[in-house]
């Protein structure tokens, strides 16, 4: 900066340049933090069960938790993104279960198009606050699912509700939990071709 020589009373251009460099570093750091927030955010949801992200447990842990006496109702919900030509619904709409008991439930999915498609399911539970107490042991949503044209498949999920749900004052009043899945195409197709076709293949879910 040509004119800084006589504009800065004490120090001049080097001091101004150093200040500007530090400030630029702050800007760079904040940009980095905003991108770092993506993995941090996912980690945060997994650890805290935020936004209804259920926990994932092994079969050993379920036996460690003593089954409680109380009964809780679990409802099953299913949705399909309109870009995936599938029909997807739970076999039973709801089950009554004793807390701490392992439950095995099934969904059914059918590919109604004439090509092989691969889907992946996102999931959550509502109310969101019960997520830390809702544990999945095995689930079709942990991996991608591929269906040939017209193929139908049964998709199992096993889970248990932690009996401690009734010790937490925030969740003690819960009597019904809804487990929800949404199937999306595993590899989103180019939108120019996918969108119009997807509209005709849209499924109401169940």
């Amino acid at each position: 900066m040509a004119s800084t020589d006589n504009t800065a009373p004490k120090g001049g251009r080097t001091r101004n340049g150093a200040t500007a460099l530090v400030l630029l570093g702050v800007v760079g750091g904040m940009v980095g933090l905003s991108f770092a927030s993506v993995p941090l955010y996912q980690l945060f949801c997994k650890v805290t069960g935020y936004g209804g992200t259920p926990g994932r447990e092994t079969a050993e842990q379920v036996h460690a938790a003593a089954p409680g006496a109380r009964i809780i109702k679990v409802r099953f919900d299913s949705n399909v993104n309109h870009n995936l030509p599938w029909v997807f619904h739970p076999v039973k709409r709801e089950v009554q279960t004793r807390v701490g008991e392992e439950v095995l439930a099934f969904y059914e999915a059918r590919n109604i198009s004439d090509r092989t498609t691969t889907g992946t399911a996102t999931f959550n539970v509502t109310p969101f606050k019960v997520a830390p107490y809702f544990n999945k042991i095995e689930c079709f949503c942990f991996t991608e699912q591929t269906l040939k044209p017209g193929q139908e498949a049964s998709m199992p999920v096993s889970f248990f509700v932690d009996p401690e749900i009734f010790d937490d004052p925030a969740t003690a009043e819960v009597t019904t939990i809804t487990l929800s899945y949404t199937f999306f195409p595993a590899k989103p197709e180019p939108r120019a071709t996918a969108a119009p076709e997807g509209l005709t293949a849209e499924s109401p879910g169940s």
């Binding site: 400030l23 702050v26 800007v27 760079g28 904040m30 940009v31 933090l33 905003s34 991108f35 989103p188």
Partner: peptide, 21 residues
């Protein structure tokens, strides 16, 4: 200095979501 880079980062994510898969 602290807030605008976060908007820039988020906008960049939106831009790549829209255009670059």
């Amino acid at each position: 200095l602290l807030a605008l880079p976060v908007l820039a980062g988020a906008l960049t994510m939106l831009l790549t979501d829209r255009n670059f898969g």
